[in-house]
Amino acid sequence: MDIVFKNIPSMVTTMMSVTFTLLGIVILLAWPAYAVAGIILYGFGNGLRAIVRGVLPLAIFPASLYTTLMGRLARPSLIAQAVTPILSGLALGLLGSHATFALLAALAGLNVVLSLLLYRYVPRPRVPASQP
C-alpha cells in the first residue's frame, strides 16, 4: 500500500476498507450483472482489513500494549469466524440468499457507522508548519 499511498493515516485506511467492503456487497446485491466489480471491491476491502487490523491499534494505543491488545482482539474475531458457517447456513436456510445478502449489507453498513464513531478517538497526525 505504501507504494501507491504514502503516509496515509490508519483511520483513512480503515474507512477505505469498510467502504470498499460495503460497496462490494451492495453491488452484488443490487446489480448481479456487475458481480466482478462487486467481488473486486469486496476483495480490496478485505485486503485492507488485514492491514488495518495491524496498524489501527498502534494509532490508538501505546506500542507497549500492542501484543497484549492484539491477543485480546483476536478472541472475538476467532469466535466470530467459528460461528459464521453455522449462522450463515441458518440465514440462508431461513431467509434465502437475497435476504442473507441484505443482512450482510446491513452489517457492513453498521461497520461503516462504527468506524466513523471510532474516528473521534483516533489521534490526528500533526501536520508540520510550512517553512518559508
Rank of each mutant, 00 (worst) to 15 (best):
L92P: 09
A63C: 02
A35G: 06
M11V: 13
A63P: 01
A129I: 03
G89C: 10
N46D: 06
F5I: 08
Y42G: 15
L92V: 10
L118P: 05
M15L: 15
L95I: 06
V52A: 01
L65D: 07
A99V: 04
L116P: 07
A99G: 02
L118T: 11
T100H: 09
G89P: 10
G24T: 08
A37Y: 10
I39H: 01
P128L: 14
V4R: 09
S130I: 05
L90P: 13
T19R: 11
I86N: 05
S10F: 02
W31Q: 09
A30R: 11
A80P: 04
V127M: 09
P62V: 00
L104A: 15
G38H: 06
L95A: 14
A80H: 03
T19S: 15
A74L: 04
G43E: 00
Y119K: 14
G43D: 03
I27Y: 04
S97M: 13
I8C: 02
P9N: 04
V36K: 08
L107V: 11
V52N: 05
G45M: 04
V83Y: 11
R49M: 14
G45H: 03
L118W: 00
R72T: 08
S17K: 07
R53H: 13
Y42S: 15
G71L: 12
L118D: 00
V55E: 04
A82H: 03
V12R: 11
Y121H: 15
V36Y: 06
L73C: 01
Q131V: 13
R49F: 08
L29A: 12
K6Y: 03
T67V: 15
T19I: 13
F5Q: 05
L107G: 00
T100W: 05
L107M: 15
V36R: 09
A80R: 05
R72C: 07
M70L: 12
S88N: 10
V52W: 01
V12F: 02
R75V: 15
V113K: 10
F61E: 08
M16K: 00
S17I: 07
R126T: 12
R75G: 08
A59F: 03
L41E: 04
G96T: 05
Y66C: 02
P9S: 07
G24L: 09
A102E: 04
I51M: 02
S88M: 15
V83I: 15
P125A: 06
T67M: 12
R75Q: 09
L94E: 07
K6I: 10
G47L: 04
I25G: 02
T67H: 10
G24I: 09
G54S: 12
G96S: 11
V4L: 13
A82V: 14
Q81T: 14
L92K: 14
G109H: 02
I60M: 10
Y121K: 14
A102K: 12
A99P: 00
G109C: 11
A129Q: 09
T100L: 05
L92S: 11
G93E: 10
G93M: 10
L65A: 14
V12H: 11
N7C: 01
A59S: 15
I60G: 11
G38F: 03
V12E: 07
I8G: 00
A99M: 08
A30E: 05
F20W: 00
M70Q: 13
F101C: 02
A37E: 04
A30C: 12
I79C: 05
A33Q: 09
P128F: 06
L23H: 01
I27D: 03
L94P: 01
M15Y: 01
P62H: 05
A35K: 00
I3R: 14
G89D: 02
V12K: 13
